[in-house]
Design a protein around this nucleic acid. Structure first.
Lengths: 211, 211
DNA sequence: CTTTTCAAACGGACTAGTCGGTCTGTTTTA
DNA sequence: TAAAACAGACCGACTAGTCCGTTTGAAAAG
């Protein structure tokens, strides 16, 4: 199937937005670089805003779905957490420009668009908090740390990756995901949970990071 | 001493930028809300860019200085790390609008301005990496975790606070700083270092978070 | 102490350029 | 052959920055 103009516009806009920011890119630039015209653009999007919304939605819908899958595919809090972190981190290979736009430009989403994105963002956060709460209730996660703060600490650590991750850098995204899991398990788990066998699989010790 | 117009402009701009983004605020708005005029504005700043630079510089210079003080005031990697985290986190009470602008709008800094800010940002990152490296060399920090990734994980976790911290929320910034330190020490330290007495002071266990 | 002076600080109308969006005409496709 | 897809000239609104006039305040002169 041939690549549609709409897809081409989104791709071009993504690269430009990532580099120059939403307000640093004009519709004329997008039109020029994707080899179309104002007519072509406004036939596919009713405004520049809608294009921004579309980019947001593709990304947040994808990661939210992946997180729910991870939750459903596993049964213990530890494995669920690790699966969610892994699925999220891996998205950087695929959607880094989306993510950059998502965290840099979301404030410029207006009205309806803004609302819809915020709902999904909240759903994601709540799911993560739930996993941590369940882990605390079962005694796997340390109870002295507030679940909401842990949640935001995790989200912060992982999300920040968009500021520095480089595909051609020394580490693959899979290695980074493993390191994140290792750090998180050490910080969140109780001592007895740390010594369990199925947890060991997620730690670095003994299986050093190669690339 | 009476508050200068320049200070009033910066204060007003900060609040507006935080809420609406750099491009969501016009010079006319800033001028109106700070009770001055175009003449007054352009007498104090040679461009809107320079105002943005100024906001960036005030913040990054302050935290960089605080981090260096923290490094000099302490002697072991653990205490240095905790002091740096604490000093940074506490800045949110004072400079939250600056920080928001710093991480949302830095891409719109141009040329010379951009370069000067980036240098200080790098200095900060390097200082943190150095502390971790020294900790690893002395056996306090786990060596199997790459120091650069730990650095970015810490920066991410702490910086992300600007997205969710609320002065009127359930936790003070000091409590959040303590939680961050607890999480980080658990994730970075070796088992034997964790059991040392001076480390215990930074942990939550036994001294529950109150507010 | 009063007056003069002059530069810095500030007010505000105006402008030149930019950019999102429209409109009409043409081509492609089913 | 009609409707969908696209081209591109055009427009109106908006905004960073300018320009010139006015005020202020402090130092110098009388």
């Amino acid at each position: 199937m041939k690549k549609t103009l709409k897809a081409r516009i989104i791709e071009t806009a993504l690269v430009l937005f990532e580099k120059n920011g939403y307000h640093g890119v004009t519709v004329d630039q997008i039109v020029l670089e994707s080899g179309t015209s104002k007519g072509g653009f406004y036939h596919n999007f009713k405004s520049k805003d809608e294009l921004l919304y579309h980019i947001h939605d593709v990304f947040i819908s994808y990661v939210l779905e992946k997180a729910r899958e991870a939750y459903d595919d596993f049964e213990t809090p530890v494995t669920r957490l690790c699966a969610i972190i892994q699925s999220f981190t891996k998205v950087f290979d695929l959607y880094k420009p989306h993510i950059t736009v998502f965290y840099q430009e979301s404030m410029y989403l207006t009205g309806e668009f803004n609302q819809r994105i915020n709902e999904k963002r909240d759903d994601y956060r709540k799911l993560l908090t739930q996993v941590i709460r369940e882990g605390q209730a079962q005694g796997e996660f340390r109870a002295e740390v507030p679940a909401e703060i842990s949640t935001m600490a995790i989200i912060g650590m992982v999300n920040w990756t968009y500021k520095w991750f480089n595909k051609d850098g020394p580490l693959t995204i899979e290695s980074i995901a493993r390191i994140f899991n290792d750090l998180l398990l050490h910080s969140l788990l109780t001592e007895q949970a740390m010594s369990q066998k199925d947890v060991q699989l997620f730690l670095i010790k003994g299986q050093p990071i190669e690339k």
